[in-house]
Amino acid sequence: MKFYLHTFVALTCFACGSASDSQDTPDRLRLFAASSLATAVPQIAEAFEKEHPGTTIEYSFSSSSILAKQIAYGADADLYLAANLEWMDYLESRSLLATNLRIDLLRNKLVLIVPQGREDITNVTALRTEVVKRIAIGDWTHVPAGIYAKAALEKAGLWQDVKPKCLPALDGRAALAYVERGDADCGIVYRSDAKISKRVVVAAELPEQFQPDIRYSAAVTSASRHPLAQAFLLFLQSDQASTVFRKYGFEPL
């Protein structure tokens, strides 16, 4: 846990420094988004930029928890896209979100992934067998992907048995990378993350009775002064954006 704590402190301190040293640039829209959105959001942002010439969207992708803490420490962000409602609530409870500019945006699912060519792990019950030594999931103490994975394993009655095997990752994409590299026998990740990788296969989608309610939300921050922040929030709900989200395994709300 020390590694993650040091990383967390470094990131939050960096965010504070950048917030105090930077100057507002009206044409630069700053977007903080969950790492699982790192493939879909840039495509949507590019379409928005074409409709608003002169506007540039800057991204910062990481775990929703780290990004929320960065915003709380004063990082410059016009919009925040979180992979769960709790971290959005965290900012709202501190009056760091603009009034009435928060939306529920997407749903996602959890899947069990294995490296390409691995055929001996076909369902979640295999996780408690000796075949599985290491399971990659997000850090369940604060990373939404890990919190969801833990909840699913608890519903399946597996958590206490498999917890010692779990390899906590900094975010969902990091858990995916562990499986891609062969550092873990399998992983539980978002369906959207599994969809972008050619080095893993989906062994199984977790049964519906074990699936947590994975809901993404988006909001304009109270510190934002960008005239197009609200317009981009609305654009995220457009048919054009929904097409991109569906392409990568998300379910628009």
Results as ranks from 00 to 15, higher is better:
A145C: 09
A152Y: 00
M88R: 10
L81C: 00
F14S: 15
G157H: 08
E154Y: 06
G187H: 07
K155V: 07
D78I: 01
L158A: 02
R128E: 12
G249F: 03
R246T: 13
Y148W: 08
R107Y: 08
S63E: 00
T129P: 06
L29Y: 07
V201G: 01
W140C: 01
E208Q: 15
K247M: 10
A175G: 02
Y90C: 06
Y216H: 15
K50T: 10
D104P: 00
L85Y: 00
V131K: 13
K155Q: 13
K155P: 05
C186H: 07
S36G: 13
W140G: 02
L176R: 05
I135E: 04
F210I: 04
P207W: 04
Q237S: 14
E119D: 12
I147K: 14
I135F: 03
H226A: 06
G182W: 05
Y59R: 08
D27L: 11
R181N: 12
L91I: 07
P53Y: 08
K50M: 11
S93R: 13
T122S: 11
L158K: 04
E208H: 11
A203S: 13
Y59D: 06
A204H: 08
L91M: 09
Q43E: 14
P207R: 05
D76M: 07
Y216Q: 07
N100D: 15
P42K: 11
L228M: 14
A151L: 09
A149Q: 04
Y59N: 10
C166R: 03
E46Q: 14
F250E: 00
L11P: 03
T99W: 09
V220F: 10
S192L: 04
G187W: 07
S63V: 07
H226K: 07
E86Q: 13
K165E: 06
Q211S: 05
I103C: 07
Y73W: 03
Q23C: 13
D185P: 03
G187T: 07
K2D: 15
L37T: 11
S20W: 11
A33Q: 05
S64P: 03
L97G: 00
E119A: 11
N100L: 09
V220M: 10
I135T: 02
N100I: 01
M1K: 15
K133R: 12
E92K: 14
I66F: 08
A219W: 03
A231W: 03
I214V: 13
R30S: 06
A136R: 07
F245Y: 14
A156T: 09
L127I: 04
V131Y: 00
D24Y: 15
A219P: 02
L91Y: 06
A223F: 12
D183S: 11
I103S: 08
R94H: 12
Y148H: 10
M1C: 13
L167I: 12
